[in-house]
């Protein structure tokens, strides 16, 4: 492969014809392109895979119904199923459980609907308040005041064998509420 021109100055007839160099260049560029595309699949794939996966929720047991006294709203914490071992404490989450007459429950995500900060329940004024930007919600989760665009995110609930279950697993947000 001799295309160094320095030594061939002054009518060196060993210089390969232009067309051959062009073909070679095209083949090289093509191979590089194909190779890069193949290599990009795992590289890009790992990066953006989470955007294309469907993260399903599962029914999570919050404990016996008796743990939630009627007329009160209590904090329940739970482990998020399917989390990976190095998640540590962040593989847990909390929810506000509102227990109403006749074994009816409302379970709210602790995340404020404004920007996700943890809201706190106040039993006396029957309000949830957010420490970040001052969002306030009533006991049924509806927005009372402040910047939130909607009420609290509410998990689907069911009671089975005396246990309270919620359909959860994702960090709640405006697009997919829970």
């Amino acid at each position: 492969m001799n295309d160094g021109c320095a030594e061939c100055k002054g009518g060196c007839d060993q210089t390969p014809p232009r067309s051959r160099r062009g073909v070679m260049f095209m083949i090289g560029a093509g191979l590089m392109g194909v190779g890069s595309l193949v290599a990009a699949v795992p590289l890009l794939g790992v990066l953006i895979a989470p955007g294309f996966r469907r993260y399903g929720n599962t029914w999570i047991d919050l404990g016996a119904v008796g743990n939630f006294p009627m007329g009160q709203t209590r904090l329940a914490s739970f482990a998020i199923p399917g989390s990976n071992p190095n998640d540590g404490q962040t593989a847990t989450a909390a929810a506000w459980v509102r227990s109403m007459e006749g074994q009816k429950f409302q379970v709210f995500a602790v995340n404020c609907a404004h920007l996700g900060c943890p809201v706190k329940w106040f039993q006396q004024s029957r309000l949830f308040m957010c420490p970040c930007h001052g969002g306030v919600y009533y006991e049924d989760g509806s927005r009372a005041s402040g910047p939130p665009p909607r009420g609290l995110f509410e998990y689907p609930v069911k009671v089975e064998n005396g246990h309270l279950l919620i359909d959860a697993g994702r960090l709640p947000g405006l697009q997919e509420s829970v």
């Binding site: 953006i48 989470p50 697993g169 960090l171 697009q175």
Partner: peptide
Amino acid sequence: GNQLRNIMLGGPIIGGA
């Protein structure tokens, strides 16, 4: 939005990823 969020977090929750 939700897809971008999951890409940013590396999953459906804020965690190890």
